[in-house]
């Protein structure tokens, strides 16, 4: 399946990625190849087959819901341990521009 360079730019933008023109060309080719490969699945006739979004399924042995019991959180020291920037118990990020 062919992917246009505009489509690559659009997807990159949604993913907050800045790509050079060279990267856009390379991605168009690479992603296109991935999609072509995935397209092989379309060769299979799945008429009447229920789409399956996950490999898990509900069964007696699969506990899928939890009871409403709280457990203490990690606390802010641990929570912020890997934050590039923190202050006053908060994560700090560069001023947000509404998008």
């Amino acid at each position: 399946m062919k992917l246009s360079e505009d489509e690559v730019r659009y997807v990159a933008d949604l993913a907050n990625l800045t790509l050079t023109d060279a990267e856009v060309r390379k991605m168009a080719t690479d992603l296109g190849a991935v999609l072509t490969y995935i397209d092989k699945l379309n060769e299979l006739d799945t008429t009447g087959v229920e789409p399956m979004a996950q490999v898990l399924y509900e069964a007696g042995e699969t506990e899928t819901l939890r009871e409403d019991r709280e457990r203490p959180g990690l606390g802010s020291e641990v929570a912020l341990a890997n934050a590039p920037l923190a202050g006053g118990g908060f994560f700090k990020v560069p001023k947000v521009i509404e998008r």
């Binding site: 709280e70 457990r71 959180g73 606390g75 802010s76 912020l80 118990g89 908060f90 994560f91």
Partner: peptide
Amino acid sequence: ACPTSFGDPPNT
């Protein structure tokens, strides 16, 4: 399972 309580110190 984190608590939903309101008004606790941030990020706890």
